[in-house]
Design a protein around this nucleic acid. Sequence first.
DNA 1: GTCGTGACTAGCC
DNA 2: CGGCTAGCCACGA
Length: 106
Amino acid sequence: MGSRVKRISFSDKVYALCKKIPKGKITTYKIIGRELGRRGQIYRAVGVALNKNKSKSVPCHRVVKSTGNIGGFARGVNVKIKLLKKEGIMIKNRKIVNFEKVLFRF
DNA sequence: GTCGTGACTAGCC
DNA sequence: CGGCTAGCCACGA
């Protein structure tokens, strides 16, 4: 009976979590990695996964650095900032304002 | 099976 | 406060 093989890769899990992020909130690469249950600094792989998935089907623009910096974006950091601002996130100097207030924890 | 890359993080001066 | 280095993980060729 168990012919249901879920070939879910690490990257796929990252996308799933990104979709879980509510509008107006953001998260960090570290938190995502931590939710995946892996030990160590896997946040590096998280960025790589999102970078390859430049599809807008995933709100990956809601993911920022743990330091509150915007980080990067496959379409351009400028676009990322604009999207976040539209969601209600305040950004100044490429940094998140009230970072802890808009930070979403799983 | 091995090597290199990348949207990161923390520590140090 | 600001900038730089080293370390770690997953994926592709």
